[in-house]
């Protein structure tokens, strides 16, 4: 092969080069693509498909019903109630978990001997499964033998049947979820803190900033992408919560904790209404997508990417 053709091949047209690069990238992407296809893309497409069909209790014998089930979902007061509960649940979980995670991350970001131990403790809830921590909280929230009422009783505060009270069930489940999410929030915010250059703090200190000004003018702006990430993921977590609801309240009492995913579960596996459940799932998908886009949109004003 002569020099010329070699050079000619190497340069090529931009189009040819793009094709060559894609072909080269394919084997690297394949394993992920296969996994995504099996566990994400196929179920998604299948759900959308099922949303347009009525089926027997086993999801077979599909009959095309058009948008009827989507219409049912969107006009159903039960679904609207679930949506409201999910929204409340997100509100109760995202803000406290982010705030507490931020606080713990700030505490454990300092360079002190043995601080790693605290970092580990603060982050440990990330390594606890939803099922395990739900069972633990189920015991702690137990009205008669639970430690929470014991402590409250000692302090003279009125005790409560947390998980069976329509008023307190959702906040109680939210509290357990906050506890579960703190670890994740702390880890991510700690990582975010480490990305803020030390010199910015030093510069601020020389320029006359106190602790609060440092936090306001260096830490918060530096953390803004991290906080956005934590809150977006938190909202998604909240809308997809299922395990703790299933273990702690089964959606009760009086549907007070019947979040969307739980209602989908009921529709699909208690009422065997696969088509309607799929339609709900698709609507949930669209809602979460819109919420995420909204958060990114709002955040663009104040989030700063370096």
């Amino acid at each position: 092969m002569s020099e010329e053709t070699m050079a000619g091949r190497r340069v090529g047209s931009p189009r040819a080069r793009a094709i060559r690069q894609t072909v080269a990238a394919a084997p690297f992407l394949l394993p992920s693509l296969v996994l995504f296809a099996v566990f994400v893309f196929y179920p998604l497409v299948r759900s959308i498909w099922l949303g347009f069909h009525a089926t027997d209790p086993f999801g077979r014998n599909e009959v095309w019903v058009g948008t009827a089930q989507y219409h049912d979902v969107l006009t159903s007061s039960d679904f609207r109630h679930s949506l409201l509960v999910s929204g409340q649940f997100a509100l109760y979980t995202v803000i406290p978990a982010t705030a507490i995670g931020l606080y713990l991350a700030l505490l454990s970001h300092r360079r002190l001997p043995g601080i790693v131990i605290f970092r580990t403790i603060f982050s440990s809830t990330v390594a606890t499964s939803v099922a395990v921590s739900s069972v633990v909280w189920l015991l702690m929230l137990n009205p008669s033998v639970g430690v929470l009422n014991y402590v409250l009783g000692k302090g003279g505060v009125p005790t409560e049947s947390w998980l069976t009270s329509p008023t307190w069930a959702l906040p109680a489940v939210a509290m357990t979820t906050v506890w579960m999410n703190i670890g994740f929030a702390t880890i991510v915010i700690l990582a975010g803190l480490q990305n803020i250059p030390e010199e910015l703090y030093e510069s601020a200190r020389v320029d006359g900033a106190g602790r609060w000004s440092e936090f306001l003018h260096v830490t918060l702006p530096g953390l803004s992408p991290t906080l956005l990430f934590v809150s977006v993921v938190g909202v998604i977590f909240a809308f997809e919560s299922f395990g703790q609801i299933q273990i702690l309240t089964q959606g009760g009492p009086l549907d007070a904790t019947n979040v969307i995913v739980y209602s989908i579960y009921r529709e699909a596996f208690l009422h065997y209404n696969i088509g309607l459940a799929s339609a709900q799932a698709v609507v949930l998908f669209v809602i979460v997508l819109l919420l995420t886009l909204l958060q990114f949109g709002v955040a663009r004003r104040w989030v700063f990417y370096q």
Partner: peptide
Amino acid sequence: VAMVFQNYALYPHM
């Protein structure tokens, strides 16, 4: 005192 840092340490969001 005022300090000028090697990497300038300018606040990136301001």
